[in-house]
Simulated assay, not measured.
Amino acid sequence: MKEELKSTTEILIDKLESWWTLFIRNLPNIAVAIIVLLISYFASRFVFKTTLRLIKGRIQQKSVAKLIARVVSVVTVLLGLFLALSVMNLGDSISGLLAGAGISGIVIGLALQGTLSNTISGIVLSFRKNIRLGNWVETTGYAGEVIDIALNYLILKEADNNIVIIPNKTIMENPIKNYSLTTRMRVTVECGVGYESDLEKVEYITKEVITDSFEQIENAENVEFYFTEFGGSSINFLCRFWIDAENALEKLKAKSKAIKEIKKAFAAENINIPFPIRTLKLDNQTLNIAQTEKEAVEA
């Protein structure tokens, strides 16, 4: 028993001595590796600040800018770690780390597929010039002002002050209409006049009203006017014109103003805008059936 204990102790001491000898032998490499790690750490902080300063002008979203800068910083630290392991002749450890990182990346990618997709879409949206904070956009059935583009979602404020949160992946996969990319919008007004109206006069008055109501319309020739159909109780027409606007609210205000001014002008010229009229024809048999049903209900 004593001999076995002595043998075990000798083996342990020999092992510790071999480790100490290996440590002393590799002490210069360890010192260089520590210096490399320290340099990579301070370099990562410098890279983080520099990257953040460079991309802050192109990306308005602070969260996205910090994410990109942090990714670049982490890459710098990882490069320093691999260099340190190489200095210490730990090639097997580097291979193990790379293999583990690859497997971990696959597992994490499968588990967070939706989240990663939204995050990547948020980064892409941040670099796109056709959508910015303050733009009035319409997408996936919603229209409003872009008030934030976060890592995972885009936030719209609709005209009724409701907040809509849309995943970035949905924005990337669907068409988007940006009203703020152009400074002009076309307003369409539809109306109808009575059959007894002078159609030439109706067209003239409508064009003059629109021209006088909006300063950006230089003359009546810039106003489109078309009679569209013989309606049930009126002859309907379509009037279109362009205004200087960057969001749908300005377009809505212009349409409202045009409707009010057209109504005033038509009333002043005794031009009738008729109500919808429906004529019902009832024969004696229908009236008798209705009277019988009424008497049955009262009984």
Rank of each mutant, 00 (worst) to 15 (best):
residue 295 E to W: 14
residue 254 A to Y: 08
residue 32 V to C: 04
residue 10 E to L: 15
residue 264 K to H: 12
residue 67 L to P: 00
residue 145 E to Y: 14
residue 148 D to K: 05
residue 283 D to C: 05
residue 188 T to S: 15
residue 34 I to M: 12
residue 19 W to E: 11
residue 149 I to M: 02
residue 46 F to Y: 14
residue 251 K to E: 13
residue 238 L to M: 10
residue 10 E to D: 13
residue 24 I to N: 13
residue 255 K to W: 14
residue 164 V to M: 09
residue 170 T to V: 10
residue 174 N to K: 05
residue 150 A to F: 00
residue 258 A to K: 01
residue 21 T to S: 12
residue 188 T to E: 14
residue 179 Y to T: 03
residue 171 I to P: 01
residue 60 Q to I: 04
residue 274 P to Q: 04
residue 16 L to G: 09
residue 211 T to Q: 08
residue 53 R to I: 08
residue 110 L to V: 10
residue 265 A to W: 08
residue 245 A to G: 11
residue 153 Y to L: 06
residue 87 V to K: 09
residue 117 S to I: 00
residue 87 V to N: 04
residue 87 V to H: 02
residue 285 Q to T: 08
residue 292 T to A: 15
residue 85 L to M: 07
residue 55 I to L: 05
residue 53 R to E: 13
residue 79 L to E: 04
residue 236 N to T: 06
residue 31 A to G: 07
residue 149 I to K: 01
residue 277 I to E: 10
residue 299 A to D: 14
residue 177 K to Q: 13
residue 130 N to F: 07
residue 54 L to M: 04
residue 286 T to N: 07
residue 210 I to K: 03
residue 279 T to K: 10
residue 27 L to Q: 05
residue 239 C to S: 13
residue 95 S to Q: 15
residue 107 V to L: 12
residue 273 I to N: 06
residue 234 S to W: 05
residue 243 I to D: 06
residue 27 L to C: 02
residue 85 L to K: 03
residue 204 Y to P: 10
residue 117 S to D: 05
residue 154 L to Y: 01
residue 155 I to M: 00
residue 247 N to F: 15
residue 202 V to G: 09
residue 14 D to M: 12
residue 25 R to E: 14
residue 87 V to E: 10
residue 245 A to T: 03
residue 107 V to H: 04
residue 178 N to L: 06
residue 261 E to W: 02
residue 108 I to C: 13
residue 68 I to A: 03
residue 75 V to N: 06
residue 14 D to Y: 14
residue 262 I to T: 00
residue 27 L to A: 07
residue 260 K to D: 11
residue 189 V to Q: 05
residue 253 K to H: 15
residue 219 N to C: 08
residue 237 F to K: 03
residue 82 F to A: 12
residue 287 L to A: 05
residue 162 N to K: 13
residue 278 R to M: 09
residue 99 A to Q: 11
residue 74 V to I: 09
residue 70 R to E: 14
residue 189 V to H: 07
residue 122 G to S: 00
residue 221 E to P: 08
residue 151 L to N: 01
residue 143 A to Y: 08
residue 84 A to L: 06
residue 20 W to H: 10
residue 242 W to C: 12
residue 293 E to G: 12
residue 299 A to C: 13
residue 225 F to P: 02
residue 197 S to K: 03
residue 40 S to P: 05
residue 284 N to Q: 13
